[in-house]
Structures are given as C-alpha cells and as structure tokens.
C-alpha cells in the first residue's frame, strides 16, 4: 500500500502524539483529560481503520451484501468507548473535588499550595 492507503494510520499516529503531548505538557487538569480523550480517540480510529475491507459495506446481515467490514473491531471499540467515557467522567469528577479542596485546577498552583502547607 502506498501513502494514501495508509492515511488513516498516519492520522492515528498524529492524533496519538497530539493527545499524548497534551497530557504531558499541559498543567491544567481539564486539558490533561482532553488530551487523554484525543489519545484514546486515536486508538478508536486505529481499530476502525483496520476493520475496513476495501469495497465492503457496513456489516449488516443481508443476502445482497457479500463484502463487508470486519465487525469484531467495531464491537471491541464500542467497549473501549464506554471505558473511555467512564474514565473521562471519573477524571472530571476528581477534578471537581480537587477544585473544592485546593481552589485550583492548575497543576503548578496545586503543587505550590501543597509546598506551602507542608
């Protein structure tokens, strides 16, 4: 396969790095969670891309259709999306409580508060 054929995977790699960078580089906890979401979305696309069969349709049971995408990764990724939603919800609720406790959602400010209270 040439470059255009792999374009999905290039996108996956790019998204993954963008997400990962956001997780590492941003001090704002909400932005970290957003980065995490981008990172996970890259993984979803990765799975969906690999399921694609050239010329295939959606995997619907019908006598007219003979070529269709591999449904298994789709199912897997549904599970993974659920997990991702749960993670995001939990992360955000932790952030809410962190904000209650510290009055900030900035990593560095929290550290400063912690260092001051020691």
């Amino acid at each position: 396969m040439s470059f255009p054929g792999l374009i999905n995977y290039w996108a996956v790699a790019a998204l993954m790095m963008i997400g990962f960078y956001a997780v590492i580089a941003h001090g704002n906890l909400v932005k970290k969670v957003i980065g995490l979401n981008i990172f996970q979305a890259a993984m979803f696309i990765f799975y969906i891309s690999m399921a694609k069969v050239r010329g295939g349709t959606a995997p619907i049971l019908d006598d007219d259709l003979s070529v269709f995408s591999n449904p298994l990764p789709h199912v897997l990724i549904l599970t993974a999306i659920v997990v991702g939603v749960a993670t995001t919800a939990l992360g955000l609720s932790l952030i809410v409580r962190i904000r209650d406790a510290y009055g900030s959602v900035e990593d560095e400010e929290i550290r400063a508060i912690e260092a001051a209270s020691d």
């Binding site: 997780v23 993670t87 992360g91 932790l94 952030i95 962190i98 406790a101």
Partner: peptide, 14 residues
C-alpha cells in the same frame, strides 16, 4: 489523595 488518584488515572489510562 485526590491528586494522587488523578495522577494515577492519567498514567493508568495511558
């Protein structure tokens, strides 16, 4: 404990 849990959440999910 909250920040520890959050840190773990980020690293664990990655």
């Amino acid at each position: 404990a909250l920040t520890a849990a959050f840190q773990y959440l980020i690293m664990g999910t990655v």
